[in-house]
Design a binder for these strands. Structure first.
Length: 243
DNA sequence: GCGACAG
DNA sequence: ATCTTGTCGC
């Protein structure tokens, strides 16, 4: 199966237009739902890798069984870069490929875990919020770096947290997922509370600092990029622990 | 005004 | 994100 990854209609071509789109879509963000409880249903990781030299982008979506963390299904999408990296506008660079990969999945994604931020964002509309509004799915953001936000180092034990603040407001949380190891930075996306987002992040880190969803998606999109041949391709497979 | 800044 | 070898440790 091979198709071209589409750039969505109306995808902004300038930074000013992209910021305007964020302001518009922010009104549709749902923040009063708790979200699915950890350990139930599906949890899907999404991630993107780049080859600037070949102007290629590859996205992966990996669906895990939330109870066992076994792989249920996975999909990849390869296409052309749709937007440059601009701090605060990451979603416009990553989402076209991510949306294509999600649509290629043979099963419902359930909760989606993004590699980046949700509400912790200059305009409170990061990658995870954006993906949630476009798909209607519950989303959370788990980032590896504190971006431009301030926080106090959480206590050493796994599970310790500290507020991630922007102008004194708690926009996310620094969460220690492994004893004594650098924390990850969690924020709510769409239809999920910050408390629940952190609970999911903990449930997804039984062995490593980063969530299993992120680790699986990262490995898969890198592989898809290496194996990328033609102009654009989307592929999906179901199985994993389900066979 | 000039950087720094998720990936 | 990506450029990049070896190396220490379980």
């Amino acid at each position: 199966m091979t198709t071209t990854v589409p750039i969505p209609d109306g995808w902004p071509g300038t930074e000013a237009r992209a910021r305007a789109v964020q302001e518009e879509l922010r009104a549709r963000l749902v923040r009063d739902e708790t979200g699915p409880p950890p350990g139930t249903g599906h949890v899907t990781g999404v991630d993107v890798a780049y080859d600037d030299g070949r102007d290629l982008v590859a996205a992966a979506a990996v669906v895990l069984d939330a109870a066992t963390l076994g792989v249920v299904a996975e999909a990849t999408a390869v296409g052309r870069v749709a937007f440059p990296y601009v701090p605060g506008l990451l979603a416009f660079r990553e989402l076209p490929a991510v949306l294509a990969a999600l649509e290629a999945l043979p099963v419902p994604p359930g909760l989606v875990v993004c590699d980046g931020y949700g509400l912790a964002h200059p305009r409170r509309f990061g990658l995870a919020c954006h993906l949630g509004v476009l798909t209607g799915l519950p989303t959370v953001g788990v980032a590896k770096n504190p971006f431009a936000f301030t926080y106090d180092d959480p206590a050493a034990p796994r599970g310790s947290t500290a507020p991630l603040r922007a102008d004194g407001e708690e926009v996310g949380r620094a969460l220690r997922t492994r004893d004594g190891v650098k924390p990850v930075f969690v924020s709510a996306g769409h239809r999920v509370t910050l408390d629940n987002a952190c609970a999911h992040a903990l449930a997804l880190t039984p062995a490593y600092r980063l969530p299993e969803t992120t680790r699986r998606a990262d490995a898969l999109c890198r592989r898809a990029l290496r194996e990328a041949g033609g102009a654009g391709a989307v592929s999906a497979a179901a199985g994993g622990s389900a066979r």
